[in-house]
C-alpha cells in the first residue's frame, strides 16, 4: 500500500478550489440577501405555490444571485467530493482514516444536504449564506489545524466496519449540522417575526419552514446516527474486546444521542414545542461539534486516530 504523490497533491489542490468556490457562493448568497426582494410572508407551504399572487413569475435579479450561488455551490461540492475521492485513490483506501478526512467528509455531507433541501424546498435556498459561511470557516480551520499527509491506515482501522461505522457517523453528523443551522435560524427568525424589526432576517424563509426543515433533517439523521452507534459497538467488540466502554468518544456520542432523543420528544410535547425544542436541537448540534473537536484533539481515548501530534 503505497501513496500516489500526484493524486495526493491533486487532492490538496481540490481542497483549495472547493474553499474558493464556496467563498464565491457566500458572496452570491449575501448579495441575494442584500439586494433581494422581501418574500411575501410565507402563508403557503413551500412548494405548493400559487397563493403568492403579488410575486411576478419571472426570476428577479436577486433570485439570479441566489441561483448563481447555488450553481457555484454545486461546483464547490464537486471539487469537495473530489478531495476525498482523490485522497482515497492516492492511498488506496476509504478516505476517512484521520480527522482531516473525517471532518472534510462531514462538511461535505452538510453541503450536499443543503443542496438537496434547496432543490426540494425552494425557500430554503435563501439560507445559503448561513450554511456556506460556516462551511468556509470550518474548511479553512480543517485545512489549517487538522491537515494530515495522505498515508496508510493504522492496523486497528483495517476493518470493513470502517466503511459502515464511519460513513454513517459522517452522514449523521453532517445532517445534524444542517438541522442545527436551521434551528439557529429559526430562533432568530421567530424572534424577528414576533418583534417585526425589518432586518435582513425577514428575507429568510418563514420560521415555521425553518422549524420544519430542522425537524425533518434531524428525523432523517437520528436513525443513521443510531445505526452508527450500533455499528461502532459491533466494531469495538471485535477490535477492543468490549462493545461499550465509556471511552470519551463513546460517552459523547451517547450524550448527543440522548440530547437528540430529547429534541424529538420535545417537539411533540406541549410546553416544549417551538423555541424550547429548537434550543434542544442547538444544544445537540453543539455536543456533536464538541465531540468532533474536543474529544479528538484534547482528550485521549481509543478513538485517537486524529493523526495529530
Amino acid at each position: 500500500m503505497t501513496v500516489d504523490p500526484s493524486l495526493a497533491e491533486l487532492s490538496d489542490r481540490l481542497f483549495s478550489i472547493a474553499v474558493a468556490l464556496y467563498s464565491v457562493a457566500v458572496v452570491a448568497f449575501s448579495a441575494q440577501l442584500a439586494f433581494g426582494r422581501r418574500p411575501a410572508r410565507e402563508l403557503v407551504p413551500a412548494g405548493s405555490g400559487g397563493a403568492d399572487a403579488g410575486a411576478p413569475a419571472a426570476p428577479l435579479r436577486s433570485d439570479r444571485w441566489g441561483l448563481a450561488g447555488l450553481a457555484v455551490t454545486v461546483l464547490g461540492a464537486a471539487a469537495h467530493a473530489g478531495v476525498l475521492i482523490t485522497r482515497g485513490m492516492a492511498a488506496d483506501r476509504l478516505p476517512w482514516g484521520n480527522m482531516y478526512e473525517f471532518a472534510t467528509a462531514v462538511v461535505l455531507v452538510g453541503v450536499v444536504a443543503y443542496l438537496v433541501l434547496a432543490t426540494r424546498v425552494p425557500a430554503v435556498r435563501d439560507i445559503g449564506a448561513f450554511v456556506l459561511a460556516p462551511v468556509v470557516i470550518s474548511l479553512v480551520a480543517i485545512g489549517l489545524f487538522l491537515y494530515t499527509e495522505t498515508g496508510p491506515l493504522v492496523a486497528a482501522l483495517r476493518s470493513s466496519w470502517l466503511a459502515v461505522h464511519v460513513s454513517s457517523a459522517i452522514l449523521g453528523s453532517g445532517l445534524f449540522f444542517v438541522s442545527g443551522i436551521a434551528s439557529v435560524l429559526y430562533l432568530l427568525r421567530s424572534r424577528q417575526e414576533a418583534g417585526a424589526d425589518g432586518s435582513f432576517l425577514s428575507r429568510l424563509p418563514g420560521a415555521a419552514t425553518l422549524d420544519r426543515v430542522a425537524h425533518r433533517t434531524a428525523v432523517f439523521a437520528f436513525p443513521i446516527y443510531t445505526f452508527a452507534m450500533i455499528a461502532g459497538a459491533i466494531w469495538a467488540e471485535s477490535a477492543w474486546g468490549r462493545f461499550w466502554g465509556w471511552d470519551p468518544k463513546e460517552t459523547w456520542m451517547f450524550i448527543s444521542w440522548v440530547v437528540y432523543a430529547g429534541y424529538l420528544h420535545a417537539r411533540t410535547t406541549v410546553g416544549w414545542r417551538g423555541r424550547p425544542a429548537a434550543w434542544v436541537n442547538v444544544v445537540g448540534f453543539a455536543v456533536v461539534l464538541f465531540n468532533l473537536l474536543y474529544v479528538n484533539m484534547v482528550s485521549t481515548g481509543l478513538h485517537s486516530y486524529g493523526g495529530l501530534d
Partner: peptide, 27 residues
Amino acid sequence: AMRTAIVLLFLLALAAIPGSLLPQRSL
C-alpha cells in the same frame, strides 16, 4: 409525564459529562 421524561433525558446527558472529563478507574 412526557416533560419529566425530557428532563430526565437531559439529566442523563449531564450526568455522563464528568465521566468523560475526569479520569475514570474503569478506563
